[in-house]
Simulated assay, not measured.
Amino acid sequence: MSFFKRLKESVSRTKESVTQKFKSGLEKTSASLVGAMDSVFSRSKIDEDLYEELEDILIGADVGVNTTMEIVDRLRAEVKERKLKNPEELKPLLSEILVEILKDGGSGMNLNPDGLTVILIVGVNGVGKTTTIGKLAHHYREEGKKVLLAAGDTFRAGAIEQLEIWGDRVGVDVVRHQAGSDPAAVIFDGIQAARARGVDILLCDTAGRLQNKVNLMEELKKVHRVIGREVPDAPHETLLVLDATTGQNAMQQAKIFDEATNLSGIVLTKMDGTAKGGIALAIRRELKVPVKWIGLGEKTDDLQPFDAEQFVHALFVEDIEKESKEE
């Protein structure tokens, strides 16, 4: 059975609505990335020019130089080992490599099975952090979990009110202090309230300023200390929210936040608004941090758990469907 056929069968086992969300949300990236590859794979032979053109396409899709070099090197090695001659045969091989990179290390959430799960959300202003928290709250409420929000971004004007709007929208309470308060104190109160109310998941917002990296790091370290002191092994997840449309700037943000706190995962928002979704590969490979959630639209349920096979299937969907018809 071909890789494309196996990929389609694997994806078909998930809900059709989820598959459709990935397809529509990654439409721009698919058209740009895979569309450009058509000229590469329609060449008459596999040669150095083919590899160089493929490198240019991957780098242009924000896959990143280092990750692109690794992908192409692995492609060369497989072509040599399998003695492939037809460029068209590289499509499923490339898809297979992309899935392996994205699945490396897993992408599932680490939820505390014995009580309260504390999830710390970090990221600069404007990336969709507050919206992400609201959508995560909705997701876990739909799973039947009791959720509470802690408004730890006391720095940005309007941040607390925005979180409260989301709390009202999805039916979740918000623990808050006045603007300018100590974020660690807000998170502490959030933990106490979560325990008192029998909450399953506490989602903690944080300030996203980068103007003073030292202040950011010290603030996040303090929040970490408070959480770790109050709840063993917490935070169970520290998720960085990144705007996929910013491309390589997202990589720089990720590096700064990874220095400040031990990131466990990435939330990539606004994937439906970019043709450079290759940033997901760059982040996974170069930062060694898995993408755990992906924003595929503006609706509340358009934030989806990241699935490597769904992601690659959505990119190569036309090729997969074409091959299935031929078989």
Rank of each mutant, 00 (worst) to 15 (best):
D38P: 00
R13A: 14
M271R: 10
Q178Y: 14
D205A: 08
A260C: 13
I121C: 02
A157K: 06
E53D: 15
L26I: 00
D189M: 03
G278T: 05
E321T: 03
L33E: 06
G295K: 07
A77T: 10
D189K: 01
A150L: 00
G123A: 09
L315G: 08
K270A: 10
V226D: 10
S181E: 09
L33W: 01
E318S: 13
R141D: 01
S95D: 11
E309F: 06
A254F: 03
R82K: 15
E81L: 13
G128W: 05
F22V: 01
A282N: 10
D189I: 01
V147T: 07
G108M: 12
V124M: 11
C204L: 04
D302T: 01
A260H: 01
S24N: 15
A137R: 02
S12M: 11
T132R: 07
N86C: 13
F306P: 00
S95A: 15
R225W: 06
R141V: 03
D301R: 06
P92K: 04
F316P: 03
A282L: 06
K91N: 09
T130K: 09
G60A: 13
P290W: 04
L220C: 07
L75I: 02
F188R: 09
I57Y: 08
G273Q: 14
V241W: 08
